[in-house]
């Protein structure tokens, strides 16, 4: 899945929507939907809208859309984007009741602008700390990882989309689709040593993540390119892009280059020069999770 079997390069689709996000944070849902549709079609080769998700998800799947909301209203996965993705999936092949937009805590979801929903028949939006969810009691031990996973990841989800916001990160270099799964375990604070390396890659390598992950979509609509992961308006750039890939390493690698370009445009030193190049990407590649070098990545760029 991750390496696009049969292809010698991993495909990463970068879809732009110029002007989609104003500095005030306003966004046109129709444009978001168009960006998602275009991304799925480029990624899967589908000709028509519903066929893109149908190539990746079956009717039996329960799809978890893992978002990132630790950054609050300003620098979390946009609700408009997550809802548009859920809508696209449900209009294609996945029953709406089998889609869950989720993160660590309901408080963070609400603060990022999400309206919680846990009814049995509709789209679900709730967090691990919802009553009846919680963390699994089985300790997962894998390489340097020892964690309890959210029951959302262990029990509910059969197929996972990492819909993370792309940000600069003071320790990891960047935070993107792979590190997003830190929010699926009870102890992410234990995984920030040594630039979060090898923890990001090894957490992803656990069967609970690796075997369920289907797709990375990076929210690069507004990118915090410096002093992340917290929000700082002077270093947040409305880029208006979404980055898609079946290869989680390649998606993050392309996201990294986008952060570097924004830094370079502002005259900032590169992450490498600051001693925080995202080394987890090479570790992930060594684990066979995907490709990190640009020569191994086919980048398709398009605009709505």
């Amino acid at each position: 899945m991750y390496l696009d079997r049969g292809m010698d390069r991993s495909r990463v689709v970068v879809v732009g929507g110029a002007g989609i996000l104003t500095r005030d944070g306003e966004m046109d849902p129709a444009k978001i939907a168009a960006m998602l549709d275009l991304g799925f079609r480029h990624l899967t080769g589908a000709d028509q809208s519903p066929d893109g998700p149908a190539a990746l998800f079956s009717r039996k799947d329960r799809v978890g859309i893992k978002i990132s909301t630790i950054g609050g209203r300003m620098i979390s996965t946009r609700p408009e984007l997550a809802l548009a993705l859920a809508n696209l999936l449900s209009s294609s092949t996945v029953s709406e009741k089998n889609i869950l937009i989720w993160d660590r805590t309901n408080r963070e979801l609400r603060e990022a602008g999400y309206r919680l929903s846990d009814g049995p028949n509709g789209l679900k939006i709730f967090a691990t700390d919802t009553a009846g969810a919680g963390y699994d009691t089985e300790l997962v031990s894998h390489l340097n990882i020892g964690s309890l996973f959210s029951t959302i990841q262990t029990n509910f989800v059969t197929a996972s989309i990492s819909l993370a916001i792309l940000k600069d990160h003071g320790l990891a270099g960047i935070t993107a689709g792979m590190k997003n799964y830190f929010g699926a375990v009870h102890n992410p604070n234990k995984y920030h040593d040594d630039h979060c390396d090898p923890y990001i890659a090894e957490l992803f390598d656990t069967p609970l993540v690796k075997q369920k992950h289907r797709l990375s979509i990076l929210d690069a609509l507004l990118v915090q390119f410096h002093r992340g992961p917290s929000y700082h308006s002077r270093w947040a750039e409305p880029c208006g892009r979404l980055i898609f890939s079946l290869d989680p390493v390649a998606a993050d690698a392309v996201g990294w280059r986008l952060v570097e370009k924004l830094r370079s445009d502002r005259g900032l030193p590169s992450l490498d020069e600051e001693g925080r190049e995202p080394t987890y990407l090479k570790t992930a590649e060594a684990l066979g999770l995907g490709r990190s070098a640009l020569e191994g990545i086919q980048i398709i760029e398009d605009e709505i």
Partner: peptide, 25 residues
């Protein structure tokens, strides 16, 4: 600067941005 802090309690010297927690959790 920029709402960051450095914890001086233990040798880890966690340097944290806004809303972040130290290694101790």
């Amino acid at each position: 600067p920029d709402r960051e802090i450095e914890c001086l309690l233990c040798p880890r010297l966690c340097r944290l941005g806004d809303k972040e927690r130290g290694y101790c959790g």
